[in-house]
């Protein structure tokens, strides 16, 4: 088992290097140049010497493979470099101050989506074509089809501007530092309500439909019939025998969506002025801030590979055929 995990881990390394190399090349091939951004100011002028100095300092004057080699040499020492943007701060610091917010938001959203989507999926499968099934289908698909920037603004207009129940944007009240501890927590949570609601409404469709589909397949299986034949109550049949098996595909999809947790939703962060990863990435892309773009990419790629690895190992644990069948049949 350990050997299997190690082998997979070793295989993941060249993959990571490949991913970073291709991305590195693609980003540098994109038109535009980090030094070009601030050069259209009639008042100021970047002297050619200074531009040359910047390019040298950032290795932009070297051939691509040299740049990549230097970058990866620093990376193995966990040095992500400094941002090319005017603040010149360490990449790790820039990502570090934005990642927690994005992770928190995404985790809460994911949990709420699962808590709502699984029961919806199960109930609409067991009551296929019932009124409940139809109403929830319409509801989740409406959420799926509604553009989130539009919904977000409607929510703000109703709940914040008209009713005044919830704050509009940001993460904290401007005077939050004068609040008591409890009020600070309450204030923070109230700022999260609108962005989370918008995302949850839009995200329900996926998981609830997977759940419904998978449940529909499972309830037709023989073992469910035999469970019923044994005289088990419908609750136990569905809740224990069917649900467990029906959850398998959902868990797979969940595993695949884990790397997405570190990427922020650009539009939501934009509208609600949340300083998360989405904003940072868009800004870096516009400014051709290669170190920040690459830093984020390494994190996402690593997480993706780890999530895949974890999924593979988990399969190996539950399914001995995979563990031993490296050369023979695949799953």
């Amino acid at each position: 088992m350990l050997l299997y995990a190690l082998r997979r881990l070793l295989l993941a390394l060249p993959l990571l290097i490949g991913i970073t190399f291709v991305s590195f090349a693609v980003i540098h091939l994109a038109p535009g140049d980090p030094t070009a951004i601030a050069q259209t100011d009639p008042e100021g002028r970047w002297t050619p010497e200074l531009i040359k100095m910047m390019r040298e300092q950032w290795d932009l004057d070297k051939p691509l493979h040299v740049q990549y080699w230097r970058w990866i040499k620093r990376l193995v020492q966990l040095d992500f470099g400094r941002s090319f943007s005017q603040d010149g701060r360490p990449v790790i610091q820039k990502i570090g101050e934005r990642l927690p917010v994005t992770l928190l938001l995404n985790l809460i959203e994911m949990i709420i989506i699962l808590l709502l989507a699984i029961p919806i999926g199960v109930l609409s499968a067991t009551r296929q074509y019932s009124l409940f099934d139809k109403v929830t289908s319409v509801f989740v698909f409406t959420g799926f089809a509604t553009p989130d920037f539009w919904l977000a603004q409607l929510f703000v207009l109703l709940f914040s501007v008209e009713l005044g129940w919830l704050p509009i944007s940001g993460l904290r009240h401007v005077n939050a530092e004068y609040f008591t501890w409890w009020r600070q927590q309450w204030d923070f949570l109230s700022h999260l309500v609108l962005p989370i609601s918008v995302v949850v409404f839009g995200g329900l469709a996926g998981f609830s439909r997977y759940m419904r589909q998978s449940m529909l397949e499972v309830v037709r299986q023989d073992y469910v019939q035999s469970a019923r034949a044994k005289g088990l109550s419908e609750r136990v049949v569905i809740g224990k025998h069917a649900l467990r098996n029906a959850l398998m595909p959902v868990v797979t999809i969940l595993g695949l969506s884990l790397p997405g947790l570190v990427g922020g939703s650009v539009i939501i962060e934009w509208i609600f002025a949340i300083p998360g990863m989405g904003q940072l990435m868009v800004q870096s892309a516009f400014e051709r801030d290669y170190p920040v773009i690459m830093g984020n990419l390494v994190i996402v790629a690593t997480l993706t590979l780890l999530a895949n690895l974890a999924a593979d190992i988990a399969y190996g644990v539950v399914d001995p055929r995979i563990r031993f069948g490296g050369r023979r049949a695949r799953r």
Partner: peptide, 18 residues
């Protein structure tokens, strides 16, 4: 100074006197 990248959010905040 509150960082609000979206101009339409700035306008909504104005409407709510934020």
């Amino acid at each position: 100074f509150r960082v609000i990248p979206s101009q339409s959010t700035v306008f909504l905040e104005l409407k709510a006197k934020g």
